[in-house]
Amino acid sequence: MGNPSGSGAVTRLLIVEDDAATAQGLREGLGARGFEISHADSVEAAEALVAAGGWDALIVDRMLPGQDGLFFVRGLRERGYTVPVLILTALDTVDDRILGLRAGGDDYLVKPFALGELVARIEALLRRPTMGLRPMLRAGSVELDLIGRVARRAERDLELLPREFQLLEYFVRREGQVVTPAMLLRDVWNYNFELRSNLVDVQLGRLRRKLDRPGERHLITNVRGVGFVFRADS
């Protein structure tokens, strides 16, 4: 997982976090998933490590001793530093979210988080979804007509509801990448709040039933405790 680009190089992450226990846990947890981790417990240390270069992504806590992590991130962006930054925060109001993204953060994760969620977000940052302006999107036997809003698998019309189409498009654009329920709520439903019900699971269940006929390979599978992943059949 720490090698999502498939180029053979190890992904190098810089964690800027002053809480030693959290930093230690992250170092171990992410290390076990194949990432190469460095840790800075202050802005000064982080600046020095960033200057050394070679990072694939930064994970920055907002509450750093003496300084808001956002200032650090804004400073980086002002100097033209483009490496993706994931902001960790104990604050999760709308204002905080807007501030975080405005300062140059690419994503935003509220404490306390699950390691799986963190990893999924990092990978999402590292592997930008396939965007482009093509009217057709293909992944194995799945074919999406983005203009006609028609989805087909192996020439069979899937007859998806608008929301199901949006969901499938989101997965196809992130083929092979773990997607969490929180990401789906935020990106597909535009809901920046938590639901009490398992709306995402039930909607996905319905999409899967339309997607997979008996005997066909399951295209969207569960990643236990984290989320889901779409893998195209070749």
């Binding site: 809480d19 959290t22 992250l26 947890g29 076990a32 509450m63 960790l88 104990a90 509220v110």
Partner: peptide, 13 residues
């Protein structure tokens, strides 16, 4: 939330 984060990460480990 800060101690909870540490606690959660440790428990996951």
């Amino acid at each position: 939330r800060t101690p909870l984060t540490a606690l959660r990460v440790q428990l996951e480990r």
